[in-house]
Design a protein around this nucleic acid. Structure first.
Length: 526
DNA sequence: ATAGGGTTAG
């Protein structure tokens, strides 16, 4: 039932807004063609926006765009917005930039102030050079006084850690608002300068939920989990309502801290407030329950999600691996592949960790090969760490050394540390000495390594070396040693333990039980 | 008629 051909533009928009499926939209599109309404680019504009933003049908949107002989700047920006709204973010950066370059190349239509922010967002996925050239292009075209464009640039530079450039842009804005402030705050946080971020945040004349989220995420990204939870508390106290983004950030912080109680409180909050139980919140819940050791709940949350994103799978695999449920982690991985989800580099960190913890040497090597070969995922240092650990534990030192030699990245402390661990287990004195020396090169201030070297020499009876190392220990390094620390929450009270500290009132009992556990673990080894 | 800041997995 279509309206008569002479219906007005307002009627057209009204009918469009009631299209529930692509089939409806196509009918309206056909009708527009027949009635010659489609020759007006305004019509195409509306159809394109609706196809992309409401029906998430990018191919159809692009066909609408491509069927327009000389798209005007509105159609370009509608197409670029469609790409920007797609998920995952930056999935269509290349297409976005290709269209932007086409505009510049053809000289028509000239990009306006709405085009630059869209192009810049895509440029963030490519590199800072591109951001620079778009910056100069924008300035040459007279857009240097457009705050929105300058804020996009500010954000782009800050994503590459170039805070002085970002700051300069911020100071040059004609009017600073909550968006530009937030961009700067999260820039400092991403650059690891949380102190600056907090100071700026406190100076902000006006805040919204996104501004709070920027600070909370910034703390969490820098390992300040307690602060992240605290700021969330402060935010609620000041009358702001946490949304899905807030909830996932804080859940992640709770997971890292093992704060199951607070995690449950946030779970309850999200439930009561219907804070879009969108995938990010559920992913956060899986991660939080999993990291806190409540794998049953994590699996339950997982089973409750209907649209599982890659992150959903990665969260579960990682948690299972973390708690030594190696077979389950591998099983979930196969399930994931059966469902046609393409694993990424994070998936393989979890999977390889599972193989390492379970001692599945052949499986681990097979998955490493699958990742590197068939799937073409370039191994990162974390993956090499897993492989070194895997081979080292199995005593395959020649293979370990050949992996380390052929790595495309510089070995870090995790790599040499894993090798060292393996050497101690398999009593490989010479290689252990080599590993410790590498560790000391990377981090001369870590006194632990010097102590290990001394122990190693005395175990082997190399007394001259022992004397040399002991002398080194007495010099400057020892004061810099940071004691290891761990904590656990029991009945709303957090118990903290430093390495070698017996301050806890039940320290003696705890140590006795630890010794018993260690003894029974020894028994299980053989 | 269109644009900028805040997620989660290692």
């Amino acid at each position: 039932m279509l309206p008569p051909p002479q219906f007005s533009h307002a009627d057209f928009v009204a009918v469009l807004s009631r299209c529930a499926t692509l089939a409806h939209l196509k009918q309206l599109h056909a009708h527009s063609v027949v009635t010659a309404r489609a020759t007006a680019q305004t019509t195409t504009f509306h159809l394109l926006r609706f196809a992309s933003l409401r029906l998430s049908c990018l191919p159809y949107a692009r066909r609408l765009f491509d069927s327009t002989p000389h798209p005007n700047v509105f159609l370009y920006s509608a197409m670029l917005s469609a790409y920007a709204a797609a998920s995952p973010a930056h999935a269509y950066s290349r297409d976005t930039l290709a269209l932007f370059l086409r505009m510049l190349h053809r000289g028509r239509p000239a990009p306006n102030q709405f085009i630059y922010p869209l192009a810049l967002r895509a440029a963030c996925a490519v590199g800072v050079q591109l951001i620079r050239s778009i910056h100069s292009h924008a300035c040459k075209s007279g857009f240097h006084a457009y705050d929105v464009i300058m804020t996009s640039l500010l954000d782009g530079y800050s994503r590459y850690g170039m805070m002085p450039d970002a700051r300069k842009l911020f100071d040059g804005l004609t009017e600073r608002n909550v968006v530009s402030w937030t961009a700067l705050v999260s820039g400092y946080a991403r650059a690891g300068k949380v102190g600056n971020a907090i100071v700026l945040f406190d100076q902000m004349p006006e805040r919204d939920v996104a501004a709070w989220n920027a600070l909370i995420a910034g703390c969490a990204q820098n390992g300040l989990f307690v602060e992240a939870v605290g700021i969330c508390n402060r935010m609620v106290g000041e009358g702001f309502r946490p949304n899905g983004t807030t909830v996932s950030c804080v859940l992640s912080a709770c997971g890292h801290l093992g704060m199951l109680k607070i995690g449950k409180v946030i779970h309850g909050y999200a439930w009561r407030n219907c804070v879009g139980f969108g995938s990010s919140v559920v992913n956060g819940l899986i991660d939080m329950y999993g990291k806190c050791g409540n794998l049953k709940e994590a699996r339950w949350m997982f089973s409750e999600v209907s649209d599982r994103s890659l992150t959903t799978w990665n969260s579960l695999i990682n948690c299972l691996a973390l708690h030594g449920h190696s077979e389950s982690a591998i099983a979930v991985f196969s399930e994931m592949r059966d469902e046609g989800i393409e694993p990424d580099e994070v998936t393989f960190v979890g999977l390889l960790n599972a193989c390492t913890h379970g001692g599945f040497v052949n499986e681990g090597l097979m998955y490493f090969e699958l990742m590197n070969g068939e799937l073409g995922i370039e191994p990162e240092i974390e993956h090499y760490g897993c492989i070194v650990d895997l081979l080292g534990r199995a005593g395959r030192f020649e293979d370990v050394m050949s992996v380390i030699k052929n790595m495309k990245v510089q070995p870090d402390e995790v790599i040499w540390g894993s090798l060292l661990n393996a050497c101690r287990k398999h009593r490989q004195l010479e290689l252990a000495e080599f590993a410790i020396k590498k560790l000391l090169q990377l981090n001369p201030n870590n006194a632990n390594y010097v102590v290990m070297l001394a122990n190693l020499y005395s175990e082997g009876g190399f007394w001259e070396e022992v004397t040399k190392v002991r002398k080194l220990m007495q010099e400057d390094i020892m004061g810099k040693k940071l004691p290891g620390c761990s904590w656990i929450e029991v009945d709303r009270k957090t118990h903290t333990f430093y390495s070698g500290d017996d301050a806890h009132p039940e320290s003696e009992d705890i140590c006795n039980i630890l010794e018993e556990l260690a003894a029974s673990m020894e028994m299980c080894q053989d």
